[in-house]
């Protein structure tokens, strides 16, 4: 299993991760090593085995339909990088 630098660029793009061009090679190498190591999983026959998404075989608990939260906008927006008129601001999005 070998990942090239284009693959690294593509994944970094999907994950919106700024990665320096100069680091691409290092990441390509270490990800290739890791996926080579992970390859050993392919040797196991898993036919008919249900994937295990959770450690415990529990079922989803349900919450009553009640409004329990009150307005905490000031508190939440105190830690926001940029707000105005109660809105979070981001660079203009063109649709």
């Amino acid at each position: 299993m070998s990942l090239d630098q284009d693959t690294i660029r593509r994944i970094a793009r999907l994950a919106r991760l700024g990665v320096d061009e100069s680091e691409n090679e290092t990441y390509a190498r270490s990800l290739s090593d890791i996926f080579a190591f992970v390859e050993q999983l392919n040797a196991v026959d898993t036919t008919g085995i249900e994937p295990m998404a959770h450690p415990l075989d529990a079922r989803q608990r349900l919450r009553p339909d009640e409004v329990t939260e009150s307005n905490q906008r000031d508190k939440f927006q105190k830690i926001a990088p940029r707000v105005e008129a109660g809105l979070y601001l981001v660079p203009r999005v063109i649709e």
Partner: peptide, 15 residues
């Protein structure tokens, strides 16, 4: 399928 699903299947075997 090759990675995530496979890993979750083997996870069950480990459990």
């Amino acid at each position: 399928d090759a990675y995530y699903l496979k890993a979750q299947q083997i996870r069950r075997l480990i459990r």
